[in-house]
Computed example of a mutant assay.
Amino acid sequence: MKESIQIIPFSNLALAFIPVAAVIIIIWKWQLNYKNTIYAICRMLTQLLFIGYILTYIFASDSALIVGLVLFVMIAASSWIALRTLSIPRQTLYLMSFISITLGGGIILFFITQFILILQPWYLPNYLIPLAGMVFANAMNSVSLAGERIEAELNRGLSYEEARIIAFKTSLIPITNSLFAVGLVSLPGMMTGQILSGVSPLIAVRYQIMVMCMLFGSSGFTSALFLTLIKNKLATITDTDTKP
């Protein structure tokens, strides 16, 4: 089973936007914010085309400094985006978000790449960068869910300890659902990509098991750390809001 992956012509790729356009029409007809959806699609397209060229350069450069810079940009961006849904100003919690994603995701990434994959060199970009993207994106979503939920529960009058438990549980819902569904409902991205490129499904399964453990670990560590770090900051904000 060693076939080269099929290359998608741009003319065929354009057809993928037909269902996208149909959904945008529904959004417009139902009087929702279709402009935001169009902006999101355009941004996705621009970012992916841009990163395609950038990754080609990075993979060829074989530079630890460049790889490190890419990881920093990933963490900095994900830390900012994670706080998008909170009513609290992002700059107020940004440092906590940055630390949580750096440690919660970074420790897991280091463990996976250096003790399971044993990358040589340690910064091997065609492995490290895709895995880092998975870890930090997952950590970002965990921070976003945990932050949104603990804010909502505190506004309902729950104590911090009660709100933290609910927020932590909420942050684990997506990855827990994925654990239940993987192999039964879905074949995740890495496994699908490897199978499409001709790798044996038995080998692809090993990588996917590693990825699922990696994502679960990064999600749990990151959200737990974030919820711990923001305790005093949330208490300060709550006290300020309750003062006459």
Score class of each variant (00 low, 15 high):
residue 4 S to K: 15
residue 12 N to M: 08
residue 15 L to K: 09
residue 16 A to H: 06
residue 19 P to C: 02
residue 20 V to N: 00
residue 27 I to Y: 00
residue 29 K to T: 09
residue 30 W to F: 13
residue 34 Y to C: 15
residue 36 N to M: 14
residue 39 Y to I: 14
residue 40 A to C: 02
residue 48 L to I: 08
residue 54 I to K: 05
residue 56 T to Q: 15
residue 60 A to H: 06
residue 62 D to R: 11
residue 63 S to M: 00
residue 63 S to H: 01
residue 65 L to P: 05
residue 69 L to K: 04
residue 69 L to H: 04
residue 71 L to C: 02
residue 78 S to L: 04
residue 84 R to F: 08
residue 88 I to K: 08
residue 91 Q to C: 12
residue 95 L to A: 13
residue 97 S to P: 01
residue 100 S to N: 00
residue 101 I to H: 01
residue 104 G to M: 00
residue 107 I to C: 05
residue 109 L to W: 04
residue 116 I to P: 00
residue 116 I to M: 03
residue 119 L to V: 07
residue 120 Q to W: 09
residue 125 P to R: 03
residue 129 I to W: 00
residue 131 L to Q: 02
residue 131 L to D: 01
residue 132 A to H: 03
residue 134 M to R: 09
residue 138 N to V: 02
residue 141 N to K: 04
residue 143 V to Q: 00
residue 146 A to D: 03
residue 147 G to L: 04
residue 149 R to P: 03
residue 152 A to P: 07
residue 152 A to N: 11
residue 154 L to H: 10
residue 157 G to I: 15
residue 161 E to S: 07
residue 163 A to Q: 08
residue 163 A to F: 08
residue 168 F to E: 06
residue 168 F to M: 06
residue 169 K to Y: 08
residue 169 K to A: 13
residue 169 K to E: 12
residue 177 N to P: 02
residue 178 S to A: 14
residue 178 S to K: 09
residue 180 F to N: 09
residue 184 L to K: 03
residue 187 L to A: 10
residue 192 T to N: 05
residue 193 G to I: 01
residue 198 G to H: 05
residue 203 I to M: 13
residue 208 Q to T: 08
residue 221 F to K: 05
residue 222 T to Y: 03
residue 226 F to K: 03
residue 227 L to V: 00
residue 228 T to L: 14
residue 231 K to T: 07
residue 231 K to C: 11
residue 232 N to A: 10
residue 235 A to R: 07
residue 241 D to N: 13
residue 242 T to Q: 15
